[in-house]
Nucleic acid binder design. Structure first.
Lengths: 239, 239
DNA sequence: CGTTGGATTGAGCCTTATCAAGTCGAGTGG
DNA sequence: CCACTCGACTTGATAAGGCTCAATCCAACG
């Protein structure tokens, strides 16, 4: 009836989710093929245009999503307009799992995004019958918490240069899920998004990139960067 | 055989956990009385002296804990000594649930602390048989994630005064679990702990407290503060 | 009564923010 | 094909919020 949940992430093997490169990282990995079928019956493949919203801060959460392609920006806004980007969700990530009536953040597509949409209520009901899936979600949530705690250290205690270096190496590590391990790192988000993610201004991010170029650590390319001295960037990030 | 898990938090009603003020906030709330008995068989009531460690960053996690009294400081340290406090755990909070081999942070008792200790392995096994408990842990974890995301905004985008005001009101809200709603707020942690939690220095925290006293927002009392103009403090925190 | 550790206060500085101008590339229309 | 606009990014000059370093206060305690 509807398109695949995990399978949709895997353009090259649409027929078999368990062969899909994304499935092991998705919450669906806990499910048997039969269960996957059940879950797919609950899901609706959905596309989002660039800049469209999947979730809006303080608005009721109707749906939960499993991202299948593209990059989603998660952000929180203060009443006076200051913005903090709290994360970027990519294929395999799960959105909307807060058990809160209203969303704590806004989720917006950066470029084109595809996702499996579930009615929140139906999904929660399904969870009651699928302890393995709950367990998997718990592990996913615990991992998200761990990442958020890393980000607390970054925002609370690191310098601008460390933040940028850390951002670049983390993005690289995250992409390694999909075998993208080359020296080129795609950065679909804008400088402003990066600044708001790192608790800096756009000017400081720009200056720091420029500095890293001058020091021959990276090269700036269209929509991304190339690592020239990955080890050194990693060293700055690690500190 | 062992003392109670949730009941231990409730000095006044040691016999019945379901009458206990803490249980509804603890992961144990999902369990029947029978199950609670089973869980207690897995647990060991443990006391920690001030400044002793429950978990050490980068060390293997042998135990998980359900805090029953006292205040535990969770912190991460960079190689050069910079420290970020990522949270304070109090009665009802659950520690060590990261599914990682090694702990991502250090957990230290601030004053005397009591907790239910579980062997991690035994606890994880028990989880497999208790989906309701897993579900409860998922909700707990999702809530922790939400709090961490709030903290990201605080660290990334708020001023020193907003951070301190926010800290005070959040502490107050957290204590409200236990009916502590008066104008006096106990602060068991040191100024240095507060500074490392808020991404500031001890001097800035001290100066900000002093400023708030001058402006008649709070009064500093031994081991805590008293709110004089709670509404105004809340307003600064909300912004 | 001296010591000790936590907290406060002060002076000066530094990193990053702010404000402002300029560059670059893509898209648009005459 | 070129002038124009627009948005994203970069660069420069200056300002400020919070940090660093240092002195002092204060209460607890031997």
């Amino acid at each position: 009836m509807s398109a695949d949940c995990c399978e949709a992430t895997c353009q090259s093997h649409p027929a078999r989710c368990k062969d899909c490169a994304v499935r092991p990282f998705s919450v669906c990995a806990a499910l048997s093929d039969d269960e996957l079928g059940e879950l797919q019956a609950l899901s609706e493949p959905t596309s989002f245009a660039p800049k469209s919203a999947l979730l809006l801060q303080d608005e009721p959460v109707q749906n939960v999503f499993n991202i299948t392609s593209g990059c989603v920006r998660l952000s929180k806004i203060l009443s006076d307009g200051r913005r903090q980007v709290i994360g970027f969700a990519i294929a395999g990530d799960f959105l909307g799992l807060s058990f809160q009536e209203r969303s704590n953040f806004t989720a917006e597509a950066i470029g084109p995004v595809t996702a499996c949409r579930f009615r929140k209520k139906a999904f929660l009901n399904y969870l009651d019958a699928k302890p393995d899936l709950v367990r998997r979600l718990l592990e996913f949530s615990a991992n998200e918490l761990r990442l958020a705690q890393e980000q607390l250290v970054l925002l609370g205690r690191r310098t601008a240069e460390e933040r940028v270096a850390s951002f670049l190496t983390m993005r690289r590590a995250r992409n390694s899920r999909f075998g993208q391990q080359g020296a080129t790192l795609q950065l679909p988000m804008s400088r402003l998004d990066i600044a708001d993610y790192l608790g800096l201004t756009i000017e400081t991010v720009s200056r720091t990139f420029t500095k890293m170029v001058r020091e021959k650590l990276i090269i700036i390319v269209p929509d991304g960067i190339r690592f020239v001295d990955l080890a050194h960037v990693g060293q700055i990030a690690a500190e």
